[in-house]
Design a protein around this nucleic acid. Structure first.
Lengths: 230, 230, 230, 230
DNA sequence: CAATAAACGAGACGGTACGTCGAGTCTTCCT
DNA sequence: AGGAAGACTCGACGTACCGTCTCGTTTATTG
């Protein structure tokens, strides 16, 4: 599986005519970026400051990344461990595992990064793509993995809209993050699991349940229409 | 009843020795700010542009607000939430009404504002508060209103965690907006209603369903503890 | 003898319909202006600073003077004593008297003022007029007085171009002032008197002397052409 | 032999680590400065205007000079004095040559520059020095040259105070310029030559004559025409 | 082993926006 | 109506970053 990021320029360039980009500079630049991010935040971070801290020149940075956002994304990418793919044997166990992970230090950093990056998402479709691939999808994939196992075990019905289901938890966490300005705590995560995710996954009928009252039929009829999340 | 914002300088100054700040300038500046926010977004909005559009001078702006963030916050203050409070007589009808409203022109403006603003949410707690009050709460209140009526009608069980329930729909819409870069369409809204909100609201048992396996008890126990969304 | 300054607005207005401009404010403003001029100089002097020092408002200043230059001219005008009109009985004695006066403290102040004001002379014809009337003419009048007495005594021929003659001394002093940045000293003044003014005033022949050598004829021919100063 | 100006930053820096200051930009900036000085004067000249005219950015200017005064000083440095050194064979011929040159287009530019600059002379000794060297001395040197030749020819006595003598003409021209706001015309220049410079240079006795005699008899031939100083 | 191609540090470049300051005017309230 | 206070528009100030570029220098590859 090739180029992981696409934020870096000429990732798989292969043979070079002249001198190749020095990997030591890469590392130093990423490190300086991370340090400055932690010290002064995304918005006050300047390319000049990164260059100065890494005893580099701006050109060396722009030779590697097209701009600040991509540099930061790439720098933080290096920090991220693999998304945890829990397998406790039960849906609830796996979800609690994820909930615990949500409040870990790793995710705190992710959260800060995310909040700092959301700004650039407004304008830059490419950044949006990378942002999703690097920071969002790992979490949803973790959840998808959990749900797929649960389906295999028979804990969750096979007809669920998984694309939507796996996005409920991160959506609520993101919202909480943006609204509060800080990483959601374990309490909140557990609450989401208990009060939203588990009920949603284990509702006896399909996502649009068997009508239990006079209005139910209309519901059932409509929910026949299914959509793929784009 | 204290000053609501604290972003404005000398909010309750009372008596003035000299000439007072002209409220007409306030209004013009706020209006120009809102227009520009919607047109070009928070990050590309400049104080100079606001001054030019309001036929004002920068000094007049800086006399009122210490910087861009505060200006924007204060301008948003003026935006009335005007949440639609549908009452079609059934939960599903109300929800569909809201879903249709989600894609309306009003919400498009809101969405643009949101996309332009999220950047600043990272740093500015005050901005975050006003952002929530002016742009988020009106929508959740609309949903809360709908759910409360549904509870009153017996369509939804009384034990649901409403704080969380009302945030599921906006959280998914926000996420979709941020990930796609554009306003979620009616399709998506309807899908969320059908596959997430309705099932969640009408699950026969409480939010933590009757355990169907050995781990259920622990779940039930935990879910006794309820948290208020802060 | 009419209005002395013409920098003040409505100097000879006579009867007032309403309240008259308070002369105490005049004095306080002039005083503040003089103080600030001495402390920080003309260029760094601001109207706001004058207003603050005099516990006045800017409007009160602009009600009296059209701008900074005029305020300063007027303020310094109050400081000036009458131009000395020496009468020692001889041309040389009078001139030496003037030379001594040139280096006095009064003139030092004048010099500083002059240097600060020259800037505005570029643009403002009115200021130029007042500048000349208030700061230049008194000195030339003093000289004119001296020369007229000398003519009456027979020390100087009656046909001299007095307008030009009286401007030689101040022109050299002004030039020296501008070129050195400081008030010309008594030495220089005496030198000008001895080496320029006295020879010029007491040249035996007219200003264009009878030719005394072979080239003189050409000179004489050319110098036939006379010009009226425009 | 030290750096002549010290207004430029790092004048003799020698070796550069990075990219060097582009001399073409220097020239363009100086040229724009001179043009604007002549057009609108020192006081109305703005850094922004210079940058705009030179198709530069303000940073490029501030990288070279700390402020407006230094920029102007340095720009003036580039002006070559090109003093005309007339040699008609007679004092009067040379002087008339200079008088004619005084009203030429070149001197008009000089005059505009001068008028625009005098303001700043008050404060800036360095500006004063350059102003003198670039705009004043060339003219006085021209005169000194003329007088020295006249002395050599025996037209002018060797005991004259040349330093003073050469400054009389420019001093009167400067004064006229400042008092009238416009370039003195050829009329005036001729008058100064005839009525001041020539008499002064050709007075039979030394600069400090015996003051007690009454020599003014037969003057009246040429000075029949009288002039009013405006 | 040269030649050469490219990366490197340094930093100048044209821009754009910033937040401050002073000017001259206007408005409000007080005396 | 005058005066104090101070907000108003206007416009220049000097600074800070942006992303691009041009220097000389260093370092790998290639011929």
């Amino acid at each position: 599986m090739p180029a992981p990021t696409m934020t870096r320029k000429a990732e798989g360039a292969g043979q070079h005519r002249g001198r190749a980009l020095d990997p030591h500079r890469d590392a130093a630049l990423r490190e300086a970026t991370i340090e400055l991010l932690a010290e002064i935040g995304y918005d006050r971070l300047t390319i000049d400051a990164v260059a100065a801290r890494a005893r580099s020149s701006k050109a060396t940075i722009y030779r590697r990344w097209p701009g600040k956002a991509e540099l930061v994304v790439d720098a933080l990418h290096g920090l991220k461990g693999a998304p945890l793919l829990p397998d406790t044997g039960s849906l609830l166990g796996d979800l609690e595992c994820i909930a615990r992970g949500s409040a870990s230090a790793d995710n705190l950093l992710d959260a800060q990064l995310m909040m700092g990056l959301v700004s650039a998402l407004t304008r830059d479709a490419e950044l949006r793509r990378v942002f999703r691939e690097r920071l969002i999808d790992p979490h949803t994939e973790s959840l998808r993995h959990v749900f797929e196992h649960a389906v295999a075990r028979g804990e969750v019905a096979a007809d669920r809209n998984l694309d939507l289901l796996v996005s409920v938890y991160p959506a609520l966490m993101l919202r909480k993050l943006l609204m509060s300005g800080e990483m959601p705590d374990a309490h909140f995560a557990q609450q989401v699991i208990n009060d939203v995710i588990v009920p949603l996954a284990t509702t006896p009928d399909g996502p649009s349940p068997a009508p239990t009252n006079k209005l139910g039929r209309a519901v059932a009829r409509r929910s026949v229409v299914r959509h793929q999340e784009s």
